[in-house]
Design a protein around this nucleic acid. Structure first.
Lengths: 188, 188
DNA sequence: GTCATCATGTAAACCGTTACATGATTGT
DNA sequence: ACAATCATGTAACGGTTTACATGATGAC
């Protein structure tokens, strides 16, 4: 019962949508879950091997050539349900941008603005990507559709919040950089 | 030049506010940076030892009893500025809640709602804490004040976004759970 | 035939947490 | 005296990324 990493959830979940090779699984995770999840080969292949040993996935088309497609088994589906029901374990927060801004006095307002501008650009990129993903999901008629849209919506809310915050932060930093511009009385 | 972890930023930054013991530093990071950063003893003590070897911090009051207070040195301040200027390295995303919701069909709408409700409660707690922190920071007159408020503002935006999303998500999930309630035509 | 991509896997390194061992200080 | 908290450190463990080695397949 030791192995209960969230990687198993991602792997079994991915295979629950459709059978795939390890390589395709990684691509799918990057492209589809990319805005809230990531896995590397170093995680995926050993996890697949474990899951196979336990009978939760099975290897099809193991032709003489390396490539083999993995499919989830009925017991694997049960295992997935079990893992999904486990409590979400919150990762300790680590936000490099906020860490820098907190000590921003040592960095100066101008450099801070550059950092925030980068964050703003990122948020705007993200919003564009979400619009595309949303359109794509809304187009199809899967049972999963509404659940998938839930995660897109989370991304959208979060990106809009980042955008709004960045605007606020930029005007605060502009004042710190040049108080004269907003307090015309003090030209000293 | 190998050691350039962000832990050094947190440690040097903390000591730039005031000299502290390793223990106090950890408490300060938990209490003050807690909503966007975390460090454990296993990181802090070795990092302090490294920084001391490099002359970026020095140990005062190394009385015969174990406890010693660390202070940042002038070269440590320069080092901090250098580290702050380095590009923010984005951590790979890992959101356990969204991972579960994406595969929510296997979990069922009711269990998903429980998850989202927990997230909503968390966001509301966070907003309360931010209000307190904000009041406290606004009360003082430090040079750092405006930078510190920037990070609080980021937390507030993010928590409000989480709150709004959770509300949306809960009504979506309610429909999935019992379509009759919102589509009275189909009682089948 | 050769280049890009698909595909599998492993080893080393890194980062970080947890748990433990240990002991001083302070309040009751 | 004893309990709680302050304080320092380390060892073990676990999870994750990166880089590497290797080779098949398909397009041009």
């Amino acid at each position: 019962m030791a192995r209960a990493s969230q990687t198993e959830v991602a792997v079994l979940g991915g295979l629950s949508v459709q059978p795939m090779t390890g390589y395709a699984l990684r691509e799918a995770i990057r492209d589809v879950l990319g805005h809230f999840w990531s896995e590397s080969y170093g995680q995926i292949y050993p996890t697949l091997a474990n899951l196979e040993r336990q009978g939760f996935v099975r290897r099809q088309d193991a032709a003489r050539t390396g490539a083999s497609t993995f499919a989830i088994t009925p017991s694997g589906t049960r295992r997935l349900e079990e893992l999904l029901a486990q409590p979400v374990q919150a990762a300790p927060p680590r936000n490099g941008l906020l860490l820098r801004l907190y000590f921003g006095r040592h960095l100066g307002p101008a450099a801070c603005r550059t950092l925030v501008q980068a964050a703003l650009a990122e948020a705007q990129d993200a919003l564009k990507r979400y619009a595309e993903i949303r359109a794509e999901i809304e187009g199809q008629d899967s049972e999963d559709r509404d659940y998938w849209l839930l995660t897109v919506s989370a991304g959208e809310h979060s990106a809009r919040a980042a955008q709004a915050w960045a605007h606020d932060a930029l005007s605060t930093l502009a004042e710190l950089d040049d108080p004269a511009r907003t307090r015309p009385g003090r030209t000293s």
